[in-house]
Design a protein around this nucleic acid. Structure first.
Length: 906
RNA sequence: GCCGAGGUGGCGGAAUGGUAGACGUACAGGACUUAAAAUCCUGUGACCCGUUUGGGUCGUGCGGGUUCGAGUCCCGCCCUCGGCACCA
């Protein structure tokens, strides 16, 4: 994962991540793979801009400074980056293609502007995607306690905080650009089984996508006391989609009002003893608009409750751990299973955002419903057998089990007969099965300056002239719909691809305005443009793209950094499938370029991706979505971007997360300056299991420096004193290390890999003077991925040493081989080992009596038959003691490991 | 509340069901040195017995279980960290 360049410089956490990737890359190169290890900077977006704001710099100028500093540091850490193919997301030659991507998605109907209740960060003064609102309830940031107003604080406690600045997020109704990632919910879920990713990330994504299978069930509302006009009918259900349906069925429905609910537990339908509506449910609004004849006293109560709730948080919702409150609506519905009349309540514990905004409450088997029922003394009915393990006192259980007291379903199993129940509901036309996902559309517009301008133009003339006539046609060409600006309809016209990039102008006052409008709106020259369609005056979109859009496709760009004709390599450019409208025309690229691009496409998808797990439902999800969309548009022939992904652990300091406020941030520069990059790299890789992270300690890096010096001394002294042949101990130790280190690196167990090199070092120290040049070389090669600088130096030294029987010494001085790097330690193949050397000649066998260690035998490998070992063990003095006068019931023998005598204990 | 990961010496951490504590740190002792640093070597889980060689008991968060044998597998808890969360 490429970093975002904070101007404070490379964080040691960055270096931890990058070194882990680099070790793997170098190892794979030595294993004969063709390795491309790219680097770039994710410098667009809120994080960079916030920093600029803080220090009072302009983000564009700050970007230059950060870039310089970051690349300097990235050069120092010793990674095998290809610095000729870097990408910087904030440069026009990059964001041109981010904009291209936007337009492509727009034309495919995957980008839309719509009005919705969105997350608004009052500090960053912009909207945020759901994924960028984090740690609901959990982050007890100082800001939450100190800075936020009580109202915001409540909202924050419930609604979470901004991923960037930890400010509690508010909700606002705004018109925003969304990517329709929800269309891909199912495929994003299913694709997870085809990729080799860290399990925790897979789980986090599954969780986030949140598939739930259940039923939509319709409850009739007792109509006798209602007389509504047909206008309000559509308000009866919560959702727009069903509104349309209801309008169509208006005639039938006037006498038969209904509330629809979504439930994942249709098996408990018989236990539904009341219903609860969200505050924002259509029926609540209808009630209050007095179109219903409900007892006036009830109506007043409802009005009072709704107003009170709304005031409470500004949103009408409470934190989940607060006592649930509600009010009876005065309405009754009919439980379609029991035909009983059940009361309809209104409460803020039901969310409009999920399901239908109404629930069937089953207090016997849902804790929230139970709490509510207890408080308002509503009836509780049990329709599932109480689990045997349950406490006697327990009054509510949400387990699966045998269904009871439920008509035809009595005796069924809630879990096994789930589909039977769904079928039953469908047959009886009570409800129908439904799949729901938690995932919501990706809000990608930001009311900020430092981002890629959304490449859209709004044209009033287009809408008024042509479009009124050929409305349908326009929808096809421009995606869909129109938006209103100053009360007038404007057609949404994407910027033609030949006009890309829409360059982000230099705006002196780039600060976020906080009015819901981006700073670019102040730039008249930018805003006012000509419609590419009809040439009449038009206005540009002034919001910019979410920075996560920049990074959702960057890995594709690395292989085409030299092309301004194609965004990324693709076989489709050369050999367009019918669905693509002639990409040659789009890009006007030469056939040579297209062929080169097709050739490079074989590098994709990414074979190994390493990064932080904090991007589980951010970057890693977005990149998968964008890849799938590009696959569907035939630009890519794969639909998962990263074949293998491994999340590295978190690097902490003094058992706490590194943060500015704690003042425990480690600056790699200082350590590189005093210990060298090699020592820091090795230490980072050694301090704990890479996928778990670890604690950074100064004494640790000192030890690593000591170790590297020890290696250096050893190699330097022994290279002038090499043996013809290594002693058998040396050979064995070296071969064992080759095997072990290789296996460890392959599975990212860098800490134990280094430990094995240390063990080998200790053996070599004992065997000074008995080490051959080949053994020394192998030794250096093992360390090469971890300590690239020092091993190169030692390699060179060894090659030049006087006593040299190796032909490769001739290479020195040859310009060609220098250029091809064949001389380099990093261009050498990973050493091989002799299996025979791995097997020990002398094995130690533990002798146990009743599972307790009593003695250890050293036995020749060949002498490994059960009988031989057993008789040797019986003769052992220490063992004899325990066997004397005892009856041996059994002897367990594991070849080359253990022999265990089982005896009577009395 | 749900879903993950984890809990092992003073510390960071090793251990395909088979000698727990590899490797490193820290500490102690020795060698080298006028001395210190650096380096090299040795020791180091706790407790008990033995003047020494040595021997023994206990020991991987807690309580059970499976097994000849459990850090590792199973059941029930406790704690820490991470993710999700009135998602119906």
């Amino acid at each position: 994962m490429f970093p975002y360049p904070s101007a404070e410089g490379l964080h040691v956490g960055n270096m931890y991540a990058f070194t882990g990737s680099d070790v793997f890359g170098r190892f794979m190169r030595m294993k004969g793979k063709d390795v491309f290890e790219p680097i770039g900077l994710d410098g667009f977006g809120i994080h960079s801009e916030n920093y600029a704001l803080k220090i009072g710099a302009h983000p564009a100028k700050q970007a230059e400074i950060s870039e310089k500093r970051f690349y300097e540091q990235l050069h120092m850490i010793g990674n095998a980056y290809d610095f000729e193919r870097t990408v910087e997301t904030y440069k026009p030659d990059y964001y041109k293609w981010t904009q291209w991507l936007f337009i492509r998605l727009f034309k495919a109907g995957l980008a839309e502007k719509k009005k919705a209740e969105v997350n608004w960060c009052p500090s960053c003064k912009t909207t945020l995607a759901d994924e960028q609102v984090i740690n609901k309830l959990k982050v007890k940031s100082e800001k939450l306690k100190v800075e936020a107003s009580p109202e915001v604080r409540l909202g924050g406690e419930r609604g979470g905080v901004c991923e960037r600045c930890e400010t509690p997020v508010e909700k606002k109704e705004l018109e925003q650009w969304f990517f329709r990632i929800t269309i891909y919910a199912d495929r994003l879920l299913k694709g997870l089984s085809r990729i080799d990713w860290s399990e925790k990330v897979v789980l986090a994504q599954k969780n986030w996508i949140g598939r739930s299978e259940g039923a939509r069930i319709r409850f009739s509302v007792l109509g006798s006391q209602l007389s509504a006009n047909s206008q309000s009918a559509s308000l009866l259900t919560g959702q727009q989609k069903t509104d349309k349906l209801n309008t169509e069925n208006r005639q039938q429905k006037t006498d038969n009002w209904s509330i629809e609910v979504f439930t994942t537990r249709p098996d408990t339908l018989f236990g539904a003893t009341f219903m609860v509506l969200s505050l924002k449910h259509g029926i609540v609004a209808s009630l209050l608009s007095s179109k219903f004849k409900v007892q006036s006293s009830k109506l007043e109560e409802v009005r009072e409750y709704v107003e009170k709730s709304k005031k409470k948080t500004g949103l009408g919702l409470d934190a989940p751990d607060k006592a649930k409150e509600g009010v009876f609506s005065g309405l009754y519905a009919i439980n379609p299973a029991t035909n009983e009349n059940i009361p309809v309540w209104i409460s803020d514990y039901v969310l409009m955002e999920y399901g239908t905004g109404a629930i069937m409450a089953v207090p016997g088997h849902d804790r929230r419903d139970f709490e509510f029922a207890k408080k308002y003394e509503l009836p509780i009915k049990y329709v599932l057998e109480k689990p045997k393990s349950a406490d006697d006192k327990i009054e509510c259980w949400d387990s699966q089990g045998k269904i009871i007291d439920s008509g035809d379903w009595t005796g069924w199993d809630s879990e096994k007969d789930f589909h039977k129940i769904l079928n039953f509901l469908e047959e009886k036309k009570i409800g129908k099965r439904e799949l729901r996902y938690h995932l919501r559309d990706w809000l990608i517009s930001r009311q900020r300056y430092w981002g890629a301008p959304i490449p859209i133009i709004y044209c009033c003339n287009c809408w008024e002239s042509k479009l009124k006539i050929k409305n349908e046609k326009l929808k096809i060409e421009y995606g869909k719909d129109y938006i209103k600006i100053d009360g007038k309809e404007h057609a949404i016209v994407p910027v033609p691809e030949k006009d890309l990039p829409v360059v982000l102008p230099f705006v002196e006052n780039f600060k976020p305005l906080g009015t819901g409008v981006a700073p670019l709106a102040q730039d008249e020259e930018f805003v006012n443009t000509k419609c590419p369609n009809c040439d009449s005056p038009a206005k540009r979109e002034t919001d910019v793209c979410d920075t996560f859009l920049d990074s959702s496709w960057y890995f594709l760009r690395y292989l085409a950094t030299d092309s301004d004709k194609v965004p990324f390599p693709s076989k489709s450019w050369e050999n367009p499938k019918s669905e693509i409208r002639n990409p040659k025309q789009i890009f006007r690229a030469s056939s040579f370029e297209l062929r080169a691009s097709a050739k490079r496409a074989v590098w994709l998808p990414v074979d190994m991706y390493i990064g932080g797990a904090e991007h589980s439902v951010l970057h890693l999800l977005y990149a998968r979505f964008i890849t799938k969309a590009l696959f569907d548009l035939n630009y890519l022939d794969f639909d998962e971007p990263f074949t293998k992904f491994r999340a590295h652990g978190l690097l902490i300091k003094d058992s706490a997360k590194m943060s500015k406020s704690r003042g425990n941030i480690v600056n790699p520069d200082e350590y590189i300056a005093s210990f060298g990059a090699d020592a820091l790299r090795c230490y980072l890789m050694f301090l704990g299991p890479y996928e778990q992270g670890g604690d950074f300690r100064d004494s640790g890096i000192e030890g690593m420096e000591r170790f590297l010096k020890r290696v250096k001394r050893l190699v330097e002294s022994q290279s002038n004193n090499v043996a013809e042949q290594s002693s058998i101990e040396v050979k064995k130790a070296v071969d064992k290390a080759v095997k072990g280190v290789g296996e460890d690196i392959e599975s990212l167990r860098y800490n134990t890999a280094i430990a094995k090199i240390m063990t080998l070092t200790n053996v070599l120290y004992e065997s000074r003077g008995k080490i051959s040049k080949d053994s020394l070389k192998t030794y250096i090669l093992l360390l090469a991925p971890f300590a690239p600088f020092m091993t190169e130096e030692l390699w060179e030294r060894l090659r030049l040493s006087k006593i040299d029987t190796d032909k490769s010494a001739d290479i020195h001085g040859s310009k060609n081989s220098r250029k091809s790097f064949a001389w380099s330690v990093h261009a050498q193949p990973w050493p091989k080992y002799d299996e025979e050397n791995i097997t020990e000649e002398i094995v130690t066998i533990a002798v146990q009596v009743n599972g307790k260690l009593r003695s250890v035998l050293s036995i020749k490998y060949q002498v490994s038959s059960r009988e031989e070992v057993e008789s040797l063990a019986r003769e052992d003095e220490r063992v004899k003691k325990y066997l004397e006068g005892k009856e041996i019931k059994k002897v367990i023998f594991v070849p080359r490991k253990i022999i265990n005598f089982v005896v009577n204990n009395d």
